[in-house]
Design a protein around this nucleic acid. Structure first.
Length: 103
DNA sequence: CGAGTGACCGCAA
DNA sequence: ATTGCGGCCACTC
């Protein structure tokens, strides 16, 4: 899991996110190698795969994504299904639920 | 093969 | 305090 492709790292990190935990696009991008490639994370997700837990991806505010397939309500529902409390399309205790691959 | 787009983030004025 | 812009990488047409 060295620097193969940016995409591979993004996938790996997302798959490493445990149940009931969240991560931000910026964190993934930074962990993948480029802190300014946050858009790439979203871009890959949109065109890349559809079987990954993208609902665990949130912006740096802890809020839900914008053009998520189905709508933000879907993502909020998925997050709550994992035990995450979502309020006003935002994650409560986001700083507590914020996960890092180094933990 | 070339150009454009994208579910974001950080800083400047 | 708020608004606007630039920037990175990969994927699609």
């Amino acid at each position: 899991m060295l620097d193969k492709n940016f995409r591979e790292k993004v996938y790996a990190i997302i798959l490493k996110v445990p149940y009931g935990r969240l991560i931000t696009y910026g964190d993934i991008a930074a962990l993948a190698g480029s802190a300014y490639a946050a858009r790439v994370v979203g871009g890959i997700a949109h065109n890349g795969d559809d079987s990954l837990p993208w609902h665990r991806l949130v912006n740096r505010f802890g809020g839900l994504a914008s053009g998520f397939p189905g709508g933000r309500e879907i993502q909020a529902q998925l997050l709550m299904a994992e035990g995450i409390v979502c309020v006003d399309f935002k994650v409560d205790k986001f700083k507590e639920l914020r996960w890092s691959p180094n933990l």
